[in-house]
Design a protein around this nucleic acid. Structure first.
Lengths: 194, 194, 194, 194
DNA sequence: TATGAATGAGGGTTCATTCAT
DNA sequence: CATGAATGAACCCTCATTCAT
């Protein structure tokens, strides 16, 4: 009946899918519910997405694209590696707070369902970004000497885990705390220095 | 066929369940497959576990218990907070390498499926352990002053994420690298010190 | 195949369910068979009835409603209590002959499966109807003095049992015979009278 | 372990089966539960009864035999047809009150499950008994003239229905009421007589 | 474009029955 | 005689997907 532009419908479906997938995970989410939430018929969903898998992948790509664009912007406009890293961490922290369920969803499905390659590519890009920051930081003497590539992986891993804690266990983490933790580590420098 | 020792069968089921659940996640795993993998009939599974949920929960409890025991032991026998933390991290790293799929499974299902309370309790205990280490470290001047409770959460989160990276993306992380990362942070101390 | 008119399908399912339930009772009847008998897929059944229980209850309500309407009509149009009772008995006798299996089904499940309250309510209404007839009959001197309420229960019980015999054991009972039995009893009145 | 005489075990099983079958009907009753209630192993049940069906049939035969013996005795010792019928009705009424569930069970399963022939034979015998009473009653002028065979069926049907009402709906029926109902019918004899 | 009735494979679970001990 | 672990067919129900309208 509603002959709105297809794009309209597509958006509604994606929004609904995000809700439903987030709420119950990929496997338990069912098309009927997504269709209902989108105010569209079941068949309608299949007009825009070939199947459940493609719908999920579509969400995933959307979000990863947005995230990639945002992070690149942020990093580019930073004045120092430390600031870049700071902002990068902050951005992800804030995103996690806003989209807890989505975070859960993707971590949950990451590594199980299809779309692995897409996800891996995204993570590789993000890792390279961090790597670039670290390399710059070392060159400018801001960061201590370390293997940038491996350290980038550690930073990414840490961030992922902390984001997960936030989404999963409602842990409260301020950007400041996280920043300090990543930059300073645990040791007492005086002690260390001697 | 083997009509004796229910305990034997129970073990086989648990082992099979670990495999199958790990391989495809809770929702997609099916009892039939678990039974087959265990070399047992479908009905046989229900002789030892009331239902799918209980089977999963059983696995979970087992592993969390083992892990709790191991970590406590390790921490108790350490000579200094730094060493305790080191060993704690190392243990989890090694566990992650050995049981990639299991790690994935539980992280994946954490926060979605039942058993939330059990998991939360486990994480709380682990966090307290880290907290104790940190508090001791600060008191002895080994660690820098910080809020032990919040920092413990960060350490746990970081560890979780890195373990996840290992399990998920085959990232290689040596205990030494991780230790350095957590203890020292990224900053160059010279820079920091002045 | 026939993609139209859900009502059509619903009717076919109900008819099939009546057959199958009647033939083997609630517990042994299986949805698969009902679906087959209705010329519909398994899932199709669940499009119209939430589950097996609801399907059964649906049948039950339908029939009880029809029966209630019919009996009330009959009683209202009778010219005397004796005639009303006569017609009431006749109607049930004829129904029993036509729907043997259905009678069996409901008697069989009465008191075991769910829907108890619905059935009880129906029986209460029917009993009240008979009670009214008897009260009227006593007032007009047609019937002998008796407790209308208790006697109504006896009439209902008797009828139920005789209907059961018809359905179960193919006993042949003519309305005339039944009428005479209920109205006159066994005793010889001459004997009685003195 | 318990090496009591087999007869002991057999009795315990029968008693347990009566309970469980009565409580949930044949289809839903399960051997495990019966075995448990009998304080015997599952396998143990199969030592005494070839299968579920035979166990049920065994119960049935027991009860029908007892009932047949009792009714015959009662009828033989009565001094008049009216008294015989009275006592017969009374006995069944009392039995119904004491063994509500059992009554339900057999009525419920009558006509569905196996054992039809056994049941039919029993009912035929009982009917013949009543028939004999009625024939005697007519000959002695106690009962009004009627077809003894058909009337016996009506009496049996009535009784069955009333017993059912008692078992099913907790209807209260005294032997006196029932007797009067069956013997006198509803009509006012004065009216009738003229 | 849009609908939603229809399909049917497949999942979790139960339970009568067997048989090695 | 007795046990109870083991079997597997069969049940109820869900849901991704199709297609006539």
């Amino acid at each position: 009946m509603n002959k709105r532009s297809g794009i309209e419908s597509r958006k509604k479906i994606i929004a609904a899918a995000m809700d439903v997938f987030s709420g119950k995970g990929y496997a338990k989410a069912c098309i009927r519910e997504i269709a209902e939430a989108a105010g569209i018929s079941i068949g309608g969903v299949y007009l825009y997405f070939r199947n459940k898998e493609e719908l999920y992948l579509s969400l995933l790509k959307n979000e990863m694209h947005d995230s990639a664009v945002k992070t690149e912007e942020i990093v580019e406009h930073a004045e120092s590696p430390a600031e870049a890293l700071s902002k990068y961490l902050k951005m992800h922290l804030e995103y996690a707070l806003k989209h807890r369920e989505l975070i859960l969803l993707h971590i949950r499905e990451h590594g199980f369902v299809f779309g692995m390659d897409i996800k891996r590519r995204f993570f590789r890009e993000q890792r390279k970004l961090i790597e670039k920051i670290i390399t710059g930081g070392i060159r400018r003497g801001e960061f201590r000497r370390c293997n940038p590539r491996e350290t980038a992986k550690l930073v990414m891993g840490s961030l992922r885990g902390i984001v997960l804690s936030i989404a999963l266990d409602n842990v409260v983490v301020t950007p400041r705390m996280l920043n300090e933790f990543i930059l300073n580590g645990l040791l007492n420098k005086r002690e260390n220095r001697k």
